[in-house]
Write a protein that binds this DNA or RNA. Structure first.
Length: 576
RNA sequence: CGGGGCGUAGCGCAGCCUGGUAGCGCAUCUGGUUUGGGACCAGAGGGUCGGGUGUUCGAAUCACCCCGCCCCGACCA
């Protein structure tokens, strides 16, 4: 490609509304442009990288035995009503009517469509297992799109769905996909970690997320500093530090206008861990829909609401309104579990705890020396607290550390959660009709592009790994002498003959401009063609990361090829 | 949806407080001088000042409403 014809509008200044590096650099390097909130154009350079990422994903999926297909983005509401998600999915699902007033939606994911297909095409157990995937645009009307490609509303996703005759076969494929994801992210040159995850509303049994480790990540991951244990905080389990306080008689203490745990603690000169924090929630969905419950953890801990939602079998929980609190005869900021008129769930590590300070449900008063067993006899003990840095690993007793992560992949063992309502049936070995068992496996392809930039950049711009770069080589012509132009063209064509993706910067720009652009865009290798080098027949080759070499005009393409091969070898192979 | 911030040329910004008919840097176009790290000189093009309503002789500027964008919280690849 000749740069003079390339649509790659690089920016000298960082757009003011871009917060994270990947967003800033992808905009500045002319890879993407925003169309509307969470929706982007992929310009030629951006698309080339996206295709390179897709190539790795495809290769590994195919190698794992999955087959590619393409499903529609527009989906009829009937399928979603059949699965039960038309009502469950919420406003993230973009719904609309066509000219015949037919109700449809844009696909945020494709369980319904693939199940519909399979319900018609799957006949015999002999066809199973089968893993089908696609790489396609998804649309989710996110509450808050942000950080460029990191959280868009329209984004590119690889989604795979596997079908099985039984659970053990699903377990095998789940493991196969787990290994495949390890290979994919390794080949993409990422620092990542597989973590145990909450299954979310999708349901099913096992679930793992793959996180790229980056400070800009939106997720919190708890991982053991010694063993392999790693989990999303939504699900992470760890041993909380143990505390012990004096047991004595329950007493009321005056705490005028002091409701925040920190303030109560300092007023009573007590550690945060001695306080009992009580949150009252109203439940939406499930058997307890509309009811209220209280959740208690230590003042030094946080309630992990996903854990609570799962324990309650709810869809959502919200902090109760002040009217609700009045109904329950409690008081905002002074809620406590003692004699509270609703079910009380207490963090399990607090079982048998005493000497605690809790709200009294009376304005401006707390209770001291609460003994949970004595004073809250009907409490239900469940895992509620959010894992914190410094907790103890339940697997090996080492310390738990916390990191930020960008979720780039998620695999689920779904079981029959979709296949059953969608009637994905087959005839088993005994000739009986059976429901297929499913798994689903997602990778955020466009998000990966951002995640890779988060890990591959320096002060000058992006530093793509060779196999992902939009072009492997930039041929930079300096000056406008006929010899330099002719030599550049010769090199450019020589590189193309060697099947090397080359960008020939034939613009009438000063050298500095060309160097800066090539660095910003992250092209791994550059060849400088100027009169100076041509006179002595020594052309300069420089890698984006600081390597350098020289070669004669006759040998420069060959040298470039060798250097590129060496750079590829620095990238981990897929055999991990 | 709640909290905070912002909207003036492609990008980055000033002007707004104290109304008088829009400006700077970069980018773009023309000509010239330059040419191994984001050049210089001269000239030029480009703006319904996010939209609407109101106040006023007069609104980018003041008031009200709406729209859009960004950041922090609840969702997820």
């Amino acid at each position: 490609m000749r740069y003079s014809k390339l649509l790659a509008p690089t920016l000298r200044d960082t757009p003011a509304d871009a917060e994270v590096v990947s967003h800033q650099l992808l905009l500045r390097a002319g890879f993407i442009r925003r169309v509307t909130s969470g929706v982007y154009d992929y310009l030629p350079m951006g698309l080339r990288v996206l295709r390179n990422i897709e190539h790795v994903v495809r290769q590994e999926m195919n190698r794992a035995g999955a087959q590619e297909l393409l499903l529609p983005m527009v989906q009829p509401s009937e399928l979603w009503k059949k699965s039960g998600r038309w009502d469950k999915y919420g406003p993230e699902l973009l719904r609309f009517h066509d000219r015949h007033q037919h109700e449809s939606c844009l696909g945020p994911t494709h369980e319904e469509v693939i199940c519909d297909l399979m319900s018609r095409e799957l006949r015999s157990y002999k066809q199973l297992p089968m893993n089908l995937y696609q790489i396609q645009n998804k649309f989710r009307d996110e509450i808050r799109p942000r950080f460029g490609l990191m959280r868009g509303r329209e984004f590119v996703m690889k989604d795979a769905y596997s079908f099985h005759a039984n659970e053990s076969c699903l377990a095998e494929e789940y493991d196969n996909m787990y290994q495949t994801y390890q290979r994919i992210f390794t080949r993409l040159n990422l620092k990542f970690r597989a973590v145990e995850a909450d299954n979310g509303s999708i349901g099913g049994s096992a679930s793992h997320e793959f996180h790229v480790l980056a400070d800009s990540g939106e997720d919190l991951i708890a991982h053991c500093s010694a063993c392999d244990y790693a989990a999303n905080v939504e699900k992470a389990i760890s041993k909380a530090p143990a505390y012990s306080y004096d047991d004595s008689t329950l007493q009321t203490v005056s705490t005028p206008r002091t409701s925040a745990v920190e303030d109560v603690a300092s007023l009573l000169n007590a550690p945060l861990s001695q306080l009992l924090k009580t949150l009252i929630f109203t439940i939406t969905g499930g058997d307890l829909d509309g009811q209220h419950i209280a959740a208690c953890v230590r003042g030094s801990d946080q309630v992990q609401d996903i854990k609570l939602i799962r324990a309650l079998g709810a869809d959502e929980i919200h902090l109760a309104s002040s009217e609700t609190l009045q109904q329950l005869q409690s008081s905002i900021g002074f809620s406590g579990p003692v004699a509270l008129a609703c079910p009380v769930y207490i963090e399990s590590s607090l079982q048998g705890a005493f000497g605690l300070i809790a709200g009294s449900n009376q304005q401006d008063e707390h209770l001291s020396a609460v003994n949970l067993q004595r004073d809250v006899p009907n409490a239900i003990y469940i895992d509620l607290r959010q894992t914190q840095e410094g907790d103890v690993c339940t697997h090996c007793a080492a310390n738990i550390a916390m990191s930020r992560g960008i979720e780039v992949g998620h695999i689920f063992a779904l079981g029959t959660a979709y296949a059953k309502p969608m009637e994905v049936m087959f005839q088993d070995e005994q000739g009986k009709r059976a429901v297929a068992t499913m798994g689903c496996y997602g990778i955020g392809v466009s998000r990966l592009m951002a995640a890779i930039v988060e890990q591959c950049h320096d002060d000058s711009g992006i530093t793509w790994p060779v196999h992902l770069a939009p072009f492997q080589v930039s041929v930079i012509t300096l000056g406008k002498s006929e010899t330099a132009l002719a030599a550049s063209q010769q090199i450019y064509e020589g590189l193309l003959d060697l099947d090397i993706q080359a960008l020939w910067d034939d613009r009438k720009e000063r050298p500095g401009v060309k160097f800066k652009d090539a660095e910003l865009m992250g092209i791994p290798l550059r060849i400088v063609v100027g009169d100076r080098g041509l006179e002595s027949d020594t052309l300069e080759l420089k890698t984006r990361l600081g390597g350098a070499a020289e070669a004669s005009l006759a040998a420069v393409c060959q040298t470039a090829q060798t250097m590129l091969q060496e750079m590829v070898q620095e990238i981990p192979s897929s055999n991990t």
